[in-house]
């Protein structure tokens, strides 16, 4: 009896689409948006831990890249960075389209964003294992062979797992928007996650790839 009363209350709550009154501290940010920000901050501490470990190991070593291990390719990765930046702009345009009530354009832009993520993952696979030329793992950069190799694979792999999660989230959201089951707030929350993945990559690209020896 009590359980069904809770189910009815929860159902009514979901149907209640009246906007919340502006909060004194958080303005008109929805609880969903604040929840996503809290999640992103906890996720950021995980990336901070990995990047700190990398910084301490690199800072405390006389020679960071052991002789015989390959350098990381900057130009190819700059292309991947550009891909993520492009996918961030399609994400935010998809959000704007939905605020204008244009579901069809919003779905297309969300799918285009997911495609950017899929291409990024293909690029990362190529970088690790090689598709059209030998990958880093075939050039002597084996996981566990040095701190240089391990911090590279752990940090970029953890980021890649985020890109994969983002792609799944984007595809599910595009489906929900197409069916009319997701609103602008849902798309904004997914957008926050996607832009966060882009933001973290900006830092990973600089710290892991660009800082010279």
């Amino acid at each position: 009896m009590r359980a069904s009363a809770i189910a009815v209350a929860a159902d009514e709550h979901r149907r209640d689409e009246r906007p919340l009154p502006p909060d004194a501290d958080f303005g008109d940010a929805t609880p969903g948006k604040i929840g996503m920000w809290i999640f992103l901050l906890s996720d950021a501490t995980m990336f901070a831990g990995l990047l700190l470990a990398y910084g301490v190991l690199r800072g405390g070593s006389e020679v960071w890249r052991p002789p015989g291990q390959p350098e990381l390719g900057i130009n190819f990765t700059a292309g991947l960075t550009f891909l993520l930046i492009c996918s961030s702009v399609t994400m935010v345009l998809g959000y704007v389209a939905l605020t204008e009530g244009d579901r069809r354009t919003s779905v297309r832009l969300l799918l285009l964003t997911a495609l950017g993520g899929i291409l990024f993952l293909c690029g990362q696979y190529h970088e690790y294992f090689g598709i059209w030329h030998p990958g880093l793992s075939e050039q002597g950069l084996g996981f566990g062979s040095s701190a240089y190799a391990s911090t590279f694979y752990v940090t970029t792999g953890f980021h890649g797992a985020h890109v994969l999660s983002g792609v799944v989230l984007l595809l599910l959201t595009a489906l929900a928007v197409g069916r009319g089951k997701a609103d602008v707030h849902d798309v904004e929350a997914v957008g926050l996650f996607w832009h966060f993945v882009d933001l973290v990559w900006i830092l990973v690209f600089t710290l892991i790839y660009l800082i010279p020896e």
Binding site: D25, F26, G27, A29, I34, W37, S88, V89, M91, V92, E188, G191, L192, H195, F196, D198, L199, I202, L203, F205, T206, L207
Partner: peptide
């Protein structure tokens, strides 16, 4: 410096932080 500027641009404009309250 370049990385911080890029990250700030993404956070402020794409993540809409520029339009949020100071507390957030």
């Amino acid at each position: 410096l370049l990385a911080v500027v890029k990250a700030a641009l993404v956070g402020l404009f794409y993540m809409h932080l520029a339009h949020e309250t100071n507390v957030l």
